[in-house]
Design a protein around this nucleic acid. Structure first.
Lengths: 195, 195
DNA sequence: AAAAAAATATTCTTGTAAAGCAAATTTTTC
DNA sequence: GAAAAATTTGCTTTACAAGAATATTTTTTT
């Protein structure tokens, strides 16, 4: 029998639902898909209803009919991307304030709440702090920074890079990184992450 | 037996190679991975060498050990994301110039040439033009724009949205879109695309 | 450099669950 | 409401993934 958590982990992908969606989008019958894949309608029915986990060769046959890669079944790219505007004054600002004292960064989320969370953007304002207080952090995906004004120190892995207005940096965010404002002039810019 | 083309199609993903890479990156032995997954070293050996196609539950067990999703094995995201800085003065500018007259946009690529082309960023400067000359275009993925200064008109599908300094917009780039500068003051901003 | 140890690979066997078949049920059409 | 079409369910078969044991290769040790 399949372990409890394992079944749940696999379930999240909704492989069957995706197959059914692909098929119905082309108003194809089970028998037709069966013919194209050399599989039985019964099998396809079970797969679509999540009653059975297909083998990879079987899933590959299905993928070939619909001209999708196997990654289709293991990611959530059935994105309904629309169109979203965030006005300068409508940005959600955070953090609120950390027990009285100001925090090192102020971020304003350019928040595309309704959308798939693949791309996240922030307008950021960096406050002057002790370098030691700049907490290194790590997260999934890649990060991209554009400095609009001021001077920003970015510590990546061990060494610090100084970025000035108009400079850009791109890096793997799974490696620990931290930033700090350098100098007395205001420092802000754009932070974009893609997970 | 497995069909010829089917085997080839599955082979492209190099599932085994990815498993081995994950394991060796953590200098883990087959026996250790076997212990963590409750699978036999022999089985893992076969999988890594492509001698056997694992079932999805088996692959899921492996994925869980390395904290990756199953999509890891079906896409080419074994990204060698390093760390890249583009200085303000080092941007590659384009277009050069279109037969004498200036073009509607000037883009400066914040070019991460060596990296996987998932995220592309540009610094853009929009010139004043006749609305009719703003060619609508379309490309894969999503697009994100942050207006640094000036007033930008973005036509999406049919209607135009006016963006001012600090405003942001995000949209599905597979829908036709075009931009134009509004007013006499300079207009520029950041354009980020994720394909 | 040889021997010992460790790690990986191969072979053969077995058990499980995917895949098929055929009958039953549900849904659609006339 | 009957007939037809499409899908689902239960049962059976069978392919092949997974394991155990053995062999080979690689690495380490003295």
């Amino acid at each position: 029998m399949l372990s409890e958590t394992l079944e749940k982990e696999l379930g999240q992908y909704e492989i069957g639902a995706k197959v059914r969606e692909l098929r119905l989008n082309r108003s194809m019958r089970l028998v037709e898909l069966a013919a194209h894949t050399s599989l039985s309608p019964a099998l396809l029915s079970k797969i679509e209803r999540g009653k059975l986990i297909p083998t990879l060769p079987t899933l590959m046959r299905i993928a070939l009919v619909f001209s999708v890669g196997l990654e289709y079944f293991f990611s959530d790219d059935r994105k309904k991307h629309t169109f979203a505007v965030v006005r300068k004054g409508d940005r959600r600002r955070f953090p609120e304030k950390m027990d009285g004292k100001d925090s090192a960064y102020n971020f304003e989320s350019l928040d595309f709440a309704a959308l798939e969370r693949r791309l996240n953007a922030f307008w950021a304002e960096w406050q002057p702090i002790e370098p030691s207080l700049a907490e290194p952090h790590t997260h999934a995906g890649v990060e991209f920074i554009y400095v609009i004004e001021g001077k920003l120190g970015l510590t990546y892995r061990n060494s610090e890079t100084v970025l000035e207005a108009g400079d850009t940096v791109y890096f793997d965010a799974t490696v620990s990184h931290s930033y700090r404002r350098i100098g007395s002039k205001p420092c802000n810019g754009l932070v974009v992450t893609v997970a």
